[in-house]
Design a protein around this nucleic acid. Structure first.
Lengths: 189, 189
DNA sequence: GGTCGACTAGACCGATCTGTCTGCTAAAAT
DNA sequence: ATTTTAGCAGACAGATCGGTCTAGTCGACC
């Protein structure tokens, strides 16, 4: 079979919930656009939040995979792979009405840190930072954890500023800032 | 009079809506906690969104004032004033369950960039960046606009990472990163 | 051919939310 | 003294939302 109803629901949840906000999109609209009956939804998931959780976890895997693909791109030099992380921001954020980082938005909609959905966001951000750290360690940077955190701040800052202002030229700003930090870190290596 | 009912509503809106999310807090709870009758609310504001807008605008003024106070602190050297912007992040973010930057949250809850509430966020972020730029220009930095944007990314990134992970040590990371960028910018001045 | 499981359409329930309306109190202004 | 104004409490309407229930369709498999 092409795609199970369960997958259709998750895919549409990613598209609708994470683009427009979980609280704003009702379950009826999701069902209509996914062409799935309500009872099917509740046979696969025990609640709307349960679906959101599954969607968040799938998106976590997808985004992390994309992220890793950049950091391990064998066509680029190790340093350029890190630069590419920022350059490639352009691909997502120049889209009309960039909805922002889904995991940031989820954290806003589910502010309780102990909530399972919020925890997916925490896990995602930690994973991203770990991978940055590993790349930096591979480059022989002196304090890879510290530098990874700093690069991550720039990365997150760029996404959130583009989300709010709609000005995608923050991609360039983030690239410049990260380049500078990397330069410095490599000089000390 | 001590505080008009209108002010009570706005103050409580800032506290409840921006700490817990506008969509999650109902108007009945706000009225109960503000000790105001429903009809009084709707005589001052034409809708809930109208109240949120007024609250956002007041908060915009308040936060910007605090921000400016740091950037113009005469007890500090011009460079330390910029550093203080990051150091003082500690004051807000170490609070148990830091709710995140209210203007980021508003942008998530009102994603439409043309929405008046979203526009307050845009205005706020621009103002902050302008003030950073002005401080940098006062220091004789070569490209103040570009550096201001980069510092702003770090600033926003720190707030959002602390919001998600609850790890307030990102304050130090942001301080370190901004210090590095400032050093470089001043060396070129 | 008959059974079973997956799916569907849509009615329905209870809760919740925004916003309106009525009637009342009381202080302030004229 | 009377009118106006600001505020109060709470019922109410209308809409929406998440979730349940019923009844029925369709295809696969034994």
């Amino acid at each position: 079979m092409a795609a199970s109803k369960r997958d259709q629901l998750i895919d549409m949840a990613i598209e609708l919930f994470f683009k427009n906000g979980c609280h704003t999109v009702g379950i009826d609209r999701l069902l209509a656009e996914a062409s799935v009956a309500k009872m099917t939804l509740y046979s696969h998931f025990k609640s709307k939040e349960d679906l959101i959780l599954a969607a968040a976890e799938r998106l976590h895997e997808q985004v992390l995979e994309q992220f890793l693909a950049i950091l391990e791109d064998q066509n680029l030099s190790p340093i350029d792979r890190l630069h590419a992380v920022f350059d490639r921001l352009e691909d997502f954020t120049t889209a009309q009405g960039f909805p922002g980082c889904p995991f940031v938005n989820l954290s806003v909609e589910f502010p309780d840190p102990s909530h399972p959905i919020h925890q997916v966001s925490i896990r995602h951000k930690h994973k991203v930072e770990e991978h940055l750290e590993e790349s930096l360690r591979g480059l022989g940077v002196r304090e890879p954890e510290s530098v990874a955190r700093q690069l991550n701040l720039i990365y997150e800052g760029a996404k959130v500023m583009i989300q709010i202002t709609g000005d995608s030229s923050y991609v360039q700003s983030s690239r410049q800032a990260s380049e500078l930090l990397l330069e410095k870190a490599l000089a000390e290596a």
